[in-house]
Nucleic acid binder design. Structure first.
Lengths: 221, 221, 221, 221
DNA sequence: GCCTAACCGAGACGGTACGTCCGGTCTTTTT
DNA sequence: AAAAAGACCGGACGTACCGTCTCGGTTAGGC
């Protein structure tokens, strides 16, 4: 289980665990009514719902606050502006990757790919909604990299390393590049092709791309 | 050379060749001052400059008009709204693909990849700027598909077909899927990794991904 | 008839006749859609209605714009802020004083007093609404002085001068001070006592205060 | 010496002597920590300072509490809202009128007038700050009437009554109206003219207005 | 000498208004 | 007519204050 911590907010007073906000938020100073952690999660959940519905630019702070039953000031008390709210909302969606260990490279890769985008929770739409902001917002890119991409790459690297130990990996394979093929194909399919990322697609990715590249053999052979 | 034609505008009066707007625009009705075709190209050029600078949502119609020395009404006379303007501005950037024919699959692929994104003209930033809008705007997706993706896929298919005729392509390769690997890796590199797409990167793509998948052999072998 | 002119607005482009806004507003620069003078008067009228209804601080720019069927930006295009809008709204209410000349000092004074506050148009409530702001806002004080107080003092001075020419004024009367008695009593009655300023009140003011002070005689004698 | 008592607060628990808050406040119920009377006076003093500085609407409860070293809740525990706080703050400024008895109507009137507004303590600015609220807030008007106006009118009535006993008052003088002339002129001078109320001004009021009206004679005669 | 209830400072809470900016439309004069 | 200019309505932005509530901590009685 990977857990991520943001140490400080843009307004002083709190250390905040964003990905698991209810765990240990504590005021750094004494005095005053403590922030209601329920407001954090309600607002992040509201933003996480609205974002895939209408996209980044049509998401209004007013709408997020209203859906959470909160006032706008409660939002701006926690996040400097809309972009920061959205960053945390993405993070709060939860992108944990279960690391499979079935003893078979193919089964492990399919398990990983299936977990990559859980279409039932509109995470693909979220990704699409913020994609273009990433080019302009280094903090958003950092968030996506840290929360989404890195855990997946690490899980993938571990699965491949186990396969190598079993002798399944061909020598000379460019593992660093191959690690990007699956995410890139998924992202491309969502963003450019606009097609669904279902089980059949994952199997095709594995059998036609990953396994040939990793093992040096056609899967059909 | 591929040339694309839009037959009608949202406001009556003109047939317009969007990708080459100065060529043959003619008023469908007589009377009145004719539209200045120079305004079209100046506005599209301005939008094409501003888009990669600030991204889609911070691109304001006012700024585009100002940079073109035009009034806002001149923009709205030509395009229904901002999204339509941006669509045409992307199209007007020019995404023609020269189809190489060197006799070598590897050389052809490298030539194609190099042409994919011409970083000197910030086309990658343009792509990044509009990425998230594609999820929400089917017309934008259609434009990107038609202007950018399809020509590249067709060029790629031709190059591969020639290689097959030369006997370079392995049987059983999933050509439909492999055709997406290079664009997906480029798009992923720009959007998620935020890294430059230079010559070394293209060579690595070809040698570590495309050639092994197409020919069934490690290029280093 | 006294007419007052404001030469410039806080935003460039227009010379503006505030008290008679439809007369001669002219753009100082050419080009562009001219401001709709009907928006000026509708907004000023709306502010002039709302002000006595709810008072200065509960008057919202949104409410003024809504009653005028305008957008908030249209307000802020004309007035820097709420206080400036209210200043002009007061001015636009119209405070012209007809200068009576009946041949009788008493009749002239009663005519003047009756005109001082036209209760049917809630001008007293307007005065009350802005009273405290006058202490803090020198521009508001200047407006009230110029638009309301000065014309009345001049009318009063003329009436008294005519009476002096007829020999009705006692020597030694402190005319400069006496000129303030009626306005002061009216203002005091509105603000402190909160009682209506009706005809009987004006007659009592004239007969018990002004005439004895000016002529040196009890009116009842 | 006139002393005024408020019997109850908007929140139960205390009877409160507002004008002399430290005298005898007693909890009506038992139990719990008693309110600190020092908080009352500190808050009223803070409000009484800030009011003439910035006016009614720019006076914030936060600023009052901060200047008193208190929290906002401590304010709202005592006063229902800002208007009630300001009402009590005005009352607490102290507006007692010493009733002169010099044997001379003129000397008595001058003594009264001088006491009317003690310019050294910004009481005139306080009056100006709340003037417009009086039209909208009957309780504020009642407070001003009771705390400021009535005591002065009673003192004035007593002084005039003594003069009448000495035979100085002309028959037929409209004493009820004349009683308002001085307060009205002072209020008018502060609010409309924005000029200081100094000794010379009071003497002029007495000699040019009050004495002629009361005695039927020019003071200079 | 605790217990308890209400106080206290601090500050979060849901609202509402501010003044600014932009989108898409409309209306001028000039070309 | 199209052009540049810019006013128009609507609506979101981020800030500030209102009056309420809630926290940890304090401070009297009453038992």
């Amino acid at each position: 289980m990977i857990r991520v911590t943001l140490v400080s907010n843009h307004r002083p007073g709190y250390a905040r665990l964003v990905s698991t906000p209810s765990d240990g938020d504590v005021p750094l100073r004494s005095g005053g009514r403590p922030r209601d952690p329920g407001r954090d999660s309600a607002l992040l959940a509201a933003a996480g719902e609205i974002l895939p519905e209408v996209g980044y630019d049509r998401l209004t702070v007013e709408a997020v606050a209203a859906r959470a039953g909160a006032g706008r000031a409660t939002v701006y008390r926690r996040w400097k502006d809309k972009s920061e709210l959205v960053r945390d909302a993405i993070e709060a969606l939860g992108w944990e990757v279960p690391i499979p260990d079935t003893g078979s490279l193919r089964a492990d890769l399919i398990a990983l790919g299936t977990a990559y985008v859980d279409t039932s929770s509109r995470r693909d739409a979220v990704l699409a909604a913020i994609a273009s902001s990433m080019a302009r917002d280094p903090q958003l890119r950092e968030t996506v990299e840290r929360v989404i991409a890195t855990p997946r790459r690490e899980a993938y690297a571990l699965v491949v390393e186990r396969a190598r130990a079993r002798g399944e990996i061909a020598e000379g394979a460019d593992l660093g590049l191959i690690a990007h093929v699956i995410p890139a194909m998924i992202f491309h399919r969502i963003m450019i092709l606009g097609e669904p990322t279902d089980g059949a697609f994952f199997e095709r990715l594995i059998d036609s791309l990953s396994l040939p590249l990793l093992t040096g053999e056609r899967s059909s052979e």
